[in-house]
């Protein structure tokens, strides 16, 4: 039961959604975009959020589309994770998405919602960091497409009223050897202790993106370089761990030390898996 009241809007185009947002904001309605709605609904119930207007993005056709066009795969931001798992257009994304929440909840949670949400794990973002992805945002000043990393540095940087329309990656990137692993405190369904997405680019270079280690997802060129440099796998892992930030998250999922231990194992597994050692 959500005790507060809000008005509900269901635009059918991104431009309409943006215009609505602006109008409602000008009216001091404190509008919020809503896709899967899981976070809006649960946080509004708890009083952590009190939008005066909810703008549902699920009736915007281009946001609900997964398609390969012009050599790029496009993932609409309002596509539920379940669809990315079932249709498996991009195996790495499917492997990561299939460990977010539980099966039923994945029919609700959307790609854009997972990236834009306040729940800080944003695991579905990880693969996009590793694949020359682009993100298209619609806002008061029109549409802008930018490299994913420019807009996402652990959290999305969006101006008020901007929404994520879609994400895309080169078709070839779906075929890079990749590795995904989620470690939790114990349960299969849980927030991550550490989630890792890794790819091996055609040059053999390894790139890794992380969730659960820091307050927000992160990746580091220095870490990737250490991991990709010459040496025994153990030495590379050790050097890579040396590039982890000195303070990792301590919470009810686990301590910083333990997270470091789990990272070490996952990195060894990732190397073994990707390089077939």
């Amino acid at each position: 039961m959500i005790p507060i009241d809000f008005s509900y809007w269901r635009p059918t185009s991104a431009e309409e959604a943006v215009a609505l947002y602006q109008r409602l904001a000008a009216d001091r309605q404190e509008p919020a975009y809503c896709a899967g709605g899981t976070e809006i609904v649960t946080r509004a119930r708890l009083g952590q959020l009190a939008p005066g207007a909810v703008i549902d993005l699920k009736a915007i056709p281009e946001m609900c589309r997964v398609a390969c066009e012009g050599g790029r795969w496009h993932f609409g931001a309002a596509v539920p994770l379940a669809q990315l798992v079932d249709d498996e257009p991009w195996p790495l994304l499917a492997r990561i998405a299939e460990r977010v929440a539980d099966h039923t909840s994945r029919a609700h949670i959307t790609l854009g919602g997972n990236l834009a949400g306040a729940i800080q794990y944003r695991e579905a973002a990880l693969p996009f960091w590793l694949a020359d992805a682009e993100i298209t945002v619609a806002g008061p000043h029109g549409r802008h497409t930018a490299p994913f990393a420019q807009r996402f540095g652990g959290a999305l940087s969006l101006d008020p009223g901007e929404l994520v329309l879609d994400l895309s990656i080169p078709e070839s990137a779906t075929r890079f050897p990749s590795y995904a692993q989620k470690a939790t405190r114990l349960d299969y369904v849980d927030y991550p202790l550490v989630t890792v997405a890794a790819v091996q680019s055609p040059g053999g270079h390894l790139r890794v993106a992380w969730s659960g280690l820091l307050p927000e997802p992160f990746r580091s060129d220095a870490l990737d370089a250490a991991l990709s440099a010459a040496g025994t796998p153990a030495a590379r892992v050790a050097r890579a761990l040396g590039e982890l930030p000195s303070t990792l998250v301590e919470d009810l999922h686990g301590t910083a030390d333990y997270r470091r231990f789990v990272c070490e194992q996952i990195l060894s597994d990732a190397i073994a898996d990707l390089e077939g050692t």
Binding site: M1, I4, D5, G47
Partner: peptide, 10 residues
């Protein structure tokens, strides 16, 4: 109603 009660509780 539940909504009124919860709102006032807050």
């Amino acid at each position: 109603g539940e909504a009124e009660a919860k709102r006032a509780a807050r």
